[in-house]
């Protein structure tokens, strides 16, 4: 009796498998691996897992997220570079894979990989304590002009985009502030909360809890347009400070991917971004959808790399 149940279950399982196989007739693989250098629960990890959940049915593919940690992405890039370019493995990209390539000499660098699509920008924001006198970035500029080096701006690591944008800020506005680097975004928040720094730079996701509780307040975003979540917060551009940070999130694969695979991804990701459930998730996260096809993603990566290289060279951060 039990045995027959088991057989029935087996038949049911194989039926589902063959159904799934039919749905993905146009994609060459039934299982696709998504690699991230982020540890489980980290930013890119959560992003890729959400993506697998919603993109799976769209592309008819079974996604597996694999965490290849170590060397700030160096190990993950090496895995990708040594994998077949047949559409069975991809890498969740963030600026750090470019930075790691520039800062150290990893076995495989970002140039050994080929961008496939871009999906989002993580908005870079400027924030203060709730009771701060600053209302926007212009206030910060004015204060910094009246007392050079006295305004303390907290940023995350020395090689981060946070720091890069604030170094540029000084050049663009002709001011001098003290840029205080930290080990990560969490430390930055604490030092803004306890008054050590007057201004902090960060991302919405890590600030959300404090903003909702009214402990921290956004004063400016380094984005092209105002954020849907915070329509009252001005962009730096609006205030005449021409700084836009494009902290990208996308996918890259080994070099030489077949054209049909790239097309399948370009179509799949566009459908995914329009998917209501997925949309609800990313809107809540505060990221900006920024779809770019392969050409666009390649150009973005190259431009970003040039900018960062200049920054690293100027501030003597680069290795060698």
């Amino acid at each position: 009796m039990k045995y027959r149940h088991f057989l029935g279950a087996l038949v049911a399982v194989s039926a589902t498998v063959s159904l799934a196989a039919e749905a993905l007739a146009d994609y060459p693989h039934s299982t696709v691996k998504l690699v991230t250098h982020s540890s489980p629960g980290g930013g890119t990890d959560v992003f890729l897992r959400k993506l697998s959940q919603h993109l799976g049915p769209i592309m008819g593919v079974n996604f597996v997220v694999e965490n290849v940690r170590g060397g700030g992405g160096a190990k993950a890039m090496a895995v990708l570079a040594n994998s077949p370019a047949d559409g069975s493995i991809f890498y969740g990209t963030t600026p750090s894979y470019v930075n790691t390539s520039l800062l150290s000499s990893p076995e495989a660098s970002f140039t050994d990989l080929d961008p496939v699509v871009n999906m989002f920008y993580d908005p870079q924001v400027v924030y203060v304590r709730a009771n701060s006198p600053y209302q926007d970035l212009t206030d910060v500029v004015e204060d910094a002009k009246s007392r050079p080096q006295q305004v303390i701006v907290a940023v995350s690591t020395p090689s981060s985009l946070d720091r890069q944008v604030m170094e540029q800020f000084q050049t663009v506005t002709g001011t001098e502030v003290t840029i205080l680097t930290h080990d990560g975004g969490g430390d930055v928040i604490l030092n803004v909360l306890n008054g050590t720094a007057q201004v902090g730079i960060g991302e919405i996701a890590e600030l959300r809890g404090q903003i909702d509780a009214g402990e921290l307040r956004l004063i400016t975003t380094y984005t092209d347009e105002r954020l849907d979540l915070f329509p009252d917060v001005k962009t730096a551009k609006e205030q005449g400070i021409d700084l836009v940070v494009r902290k990208f999130r996308g996918l890259a694969g080994p070099k030489g991917l077949p054209e049909d695979v790239v097309t399948a991804w370009e179509e799949g990701i566009q459908k995914l971004l329009a998917d209501p459930e997925f949309k609800a998730w990313y809107e809540g996260e505060g990221v900006i959808p920024a779809y770019l096809d392969q050409e666009g993603a390649r150009a973005l990566t190259a431009e970003f790399a040039t900018e960062m290289k200049a920054f690293f060279t100027e501030y003597n951060i680069q290795a060698e």
Binding site: G71, G72, S104, T181, N316, A319
Partner: peptide
């Protein structure tokens, strides 16, 4: 490893494993 404030690498001898 990496200098905590300036980001300059120290005593890593070009070895990426020592960056952290």
């Amino acid at each position: 490893g990496t200098d905590p404030l300036s980001g300059v690498t120290r005593f890593t001898f070009g070895e990426p494993e020592l960056l952290e």
